[in-house]
């Protein structure tokens, strides 16, 4: 085996390599989700000079700091409003939101709903690691029922968000869910989402070994095995059947792909900027 050739990783041109190795823990899936996102950006053939990545706060929020494109690390939960602003100010820009479940679905929940309602032409990649990892593993809106976290030591009494249903019900026109183990399907989905005109939402299930995994006695490798064994790929499944329940099995796939609804920018131009006669 020749390893002497001085070659660099194929994603290095898209990374701020001086910041690598990144801060994500060993076994954390955010790195994989981030790499698939960058691969999808490369595969989709979009103009990367006209692309901006927006992140909120949290472990996944660090994504914007590692990508060597225009990027924007925003305040907690406000990644989508900042992205909406970018897109409205410059409709030619491809705007990708890369953030976590706590940021997008809990503190930024209403922004998420309303961006989906407007069918804002942005791509949202939501890394779901089932808890608030950066702040010490507190219960989140996506923690499965009975899972242990710092703030639910006897198990989570609540039910988690069905994020694809939330996106679909709010009006998102592209909805998919994968895990980091399904990296190829995930890359394909993010590529489609980037090329889709309208609000695209891709949920990525990811292990959090240090906070969620440790408290639930799941080693990172076991979490990936759970992702392999307890998931069912069913494209076009009904969004109401996508509960985040590992006992029932988690449904993965591409659920919604609606190309008929006009996007926010199109509707705005039609209504407020009528063609000059």
């Amino acid at each position: 085996m020749k390893t002497s050739q001085a070659q660099s990783h194929p994603l290095d041109p898209l990374l701020r390599t001086d910041r690598i190795p990144h801060i994500w823990c060993p076994g954390c899936g955010i790195g994989t989700a981030f790499a698939t996102c960058l691969n999808a950006m490369k595969d989709s053939g979009i103009d990367l000079v006209q692309t901006a990545m927006v992140s909120g706060i949290g472990c996944s929020g660090r994504g914007a700091g590692y990508v060597k494109l225009d990027s924007y690390h925003t305040t907690h939960g406000r990644a989508i409003p900042f992205a909406t602003g970018l897109k409205l100010a410059n409709p030619k820009l491809n705007v990708v939101v890369f953030s976590g479940d706590g940021d997008l679905l809990a503190i930024g929940g209403n922004h998420f709903i309303h961006a989906a309602r407007r069918n804002m032409d942005i791509t949202v990649v939501c890394v779901n690691n089932f808890n608030y990892g950066m702040t010490g593993g507190q219960v989140a809106a996506t923690t499965p029922h009975l899972a242990k976290t710092t703030t639910t030591p006897v198990g989570n009494p609540e039910n988690p968000f069905n994020a694809p249903l939330l996106a679909y019900a709010s009006g998102a026109t592209y909805v998919a869910r994968w895990t980091i183990l399904h990296a190829r399907d995930l890359t394909e989905s993010i590529t489609e989402a980037l090329l889709h005109p309208g609000f695209s939402f891709v949920e990525v299930l990811s292990p959090c070994p240090v906070n969620y995994g440790r408290r639930n006695r799941i080693k990172p490798m076991d979490m990936l095995k759970i992702f392999r064994e307890k998931t069912i790929i069913r494209n076009d499944a009904r969004p109401t059947e996508l509960d985040l329940d590992f006992d029932k099995g988690i449904v993965l796939g591409k659920f919604v792909h609606d190309t008929d609804r006009p996007s926010c920018v199109e509707l705005y131009d039609k209504t407020c900027r009528p063609q000059e006669r």
Partner: peptide
């Protein structure tokens, strides 16, 4: 596959 699953950009 090693390249896409690696969270660290450490293998290709």
């Amino acid at each position: 596959y090693c390249e896409v699953i690696c969270p660290e950009f450490a293998i290709f």
